[in-house]
Design a protein around this nucleic acid. Structure first.
Length: 414
DNA sequence: TCTGGGGTCCTAGGACCC
DNA sequence: TCTGGGGTCCTAGGACCC
């Protein structure tokens, strides 16, 4: 039996948040549903059912605009903990069919069937592609039958092709791009379909007369480098269906750690105020809460951060960030003062604020250190235990000011 | 009609060191 | 004293994804 020609599958859950809401409340089936908040609120659509997509509502659209386009839709605030639980159930189902899974996001994952030939093959299968397609349909049917969640799958020789195929397969379909036909498959598609080409790159390409992936594939190398920079070669190769140069395809299935032993990634929390804020106490309180939250998440992951970054957005949407590299930490006692200092340096305009954010990056493995012992640590251990069980918001710090971290302040005791 | 929140990755300039 | 280049780290910002 011949081996699979580097078969990668992209499994994407259709309108995932809406689908979960419909599982929990079947009366929503067939109705126009928008997840993200209520019209008029500050925020955007995070998921839109097909019924409202027909009206022009897309995820990312402001709720105000959504309210104008679809005033009679059912608006739901969203419950991300629940969506996360369902995402895990989906992964459990998929894992029964495919041992190598790479989680791309809450509603999307990549499956690699290489090495599973003997395990999957059935007498009726014509060839390897038929085996894989049949297996993928089994997954789709299982997700539907066991969880009530529709999914679509694209199959190809690279992540990019598989991903594009999965979007074309919707709703609840499977699309396989045969090996050798990638370029042909991609050629008529607009460049924007290619993962990594966003609005800016699309505009740049449009200016030099490139609108489709076929045009991009046959564009001159030098000219393309002038437009896209270092991106040009890998994207051009991808558009030609050349999998080895395809962006991101050499990524390991799970990238928890980098080669140096550090932890890849960052932890951030940010908040847009319901109304723009100028009050100093309110700002300090928010920075305190954000510091506390990111540190709690860092401790849960067992990591410490070497970089703390403050994000600030003024009422006129001007956005800036200020960061600092510090001795690795995962405690708000150390992070909050840095955040406050960064804030004082960043806040140069008297204009009210729209958003504040705190991010931890440059993460490393947690090492219990001497300075972490003491009453603060024990208290934090208790607080963390409760929060791990009931969620971060089960406990709130009883303060609205920056004095929260003074050791002698009784309100510090959560 | 203003534009969320969680991320990843890349770029580019300056500091600093050899 | 002047003149370098290369490498790495730090910082800020931006494109992009879901």
């Amino acid at each position: 039996m011949k081996a699979y020609a580097s078969r990668i599958c992209c499994l994407d859950l259709d309108t995932f948040f809406v689908s979960v809401e419909r599982v929990l409340d079947p009366t929503l089936v067939g109705k126009p549903v928008i997840v993200g908040g209520r019209p008029g609120e500050r925020g955007v659509v995070t998921a839109a059912s097909y019924e409202v997509r027909a009206l022009g509502v897309r995820s990312g659209l402001s709720l105000t605009e959504a309210g104008r386009l679809a005033p009679h839709a059912v608006y739901l605030p969203g419950r991300h903990g629940t969506y996360g639980d369902y995402a895990q159930r989906v992964r459990d189902v998929v894992a029964r069919f495919c041992p190598v899974i790479s989680i791309a996001s809450i509603d999307e994952m990549f499956l690699d069937f290489r090495g599973c030939e003997r395990m999957l093959a059935r007498p009726g299968d014509g060839d390897a592609d038929a085996t894989i397609e049949r297996t993928v349909w089994s997954i789709v049917h299982s997700l539907d039958a066991e969880l009530g969640l529709p999914a679509s799958v694209g199959i190809g020789t690279s992540r990019s092709v598989a991903k594009i195929a999965s979007t074309l397969a919707k709703p609840q379909g499977v699309l396989l791009v045969p090996h050798g036909q990638e370029a042909e498959f991609l050629a008529p598609l607009p460049v924007r379909r290619y993962p990594g080409i966003g609005p800016v790159a699309e505009q740049k390409l449009a200016r030099v007369g490139i609108g489709t992936l076929g045009q991009l594939a046959s564009a001159g190398r030098r000219m393309l480098r002038g437009v896209l920079g270092a991106w040009a070669d890998p994207i051009r190769a991808g558009a030609r269906g050349e999998a080895p140069a395809d962006l991101g395809d050499d990524r390991p299935a799970f990238r928890e750690h980098d080669p140096e032993g550090g932890i890849v990634g960052s932890i951030s929390n940010e908040r847009t105020f319901r109304e723009d804020v100028g009050d100093a106490d309110c700002i300090t309180s928010m920075l305190c809460a954000l510091s506390e939250r990111v540190c709690w998440r860092a401790r849960r992951r067992g990591v410490q951060a070497r970089t703390v970054t403050l994000k600030l957005r003024y009422a006129d949407f001007e956005t800036l960030s200020r960061g600092r590299t510090i001795t690795p930490t995962c405690t708000e006692q150390e992070v909050f003062p840095v955040v406050m200092d960064l804030y004082r340096r960043a806040r140069t305009r008297p204009l009210r604020l729209r958003l504040l954010g705190v991010a931890l990056s440059n993460l490393g493995l947690y090492a219990e250190q001497g300075r972490l012992f003491g009453e603060d640590t024990r208290l934090r251990g208790v607080v963390d235990t409760i929060r791990d069980k009931y969620g971060f918001d089960s406990l709130r710090r009883g303060t609205a000011t920056g004095r929260a971290f003074r050791r002698d302040d009784p309100r510090t005791r959560a």
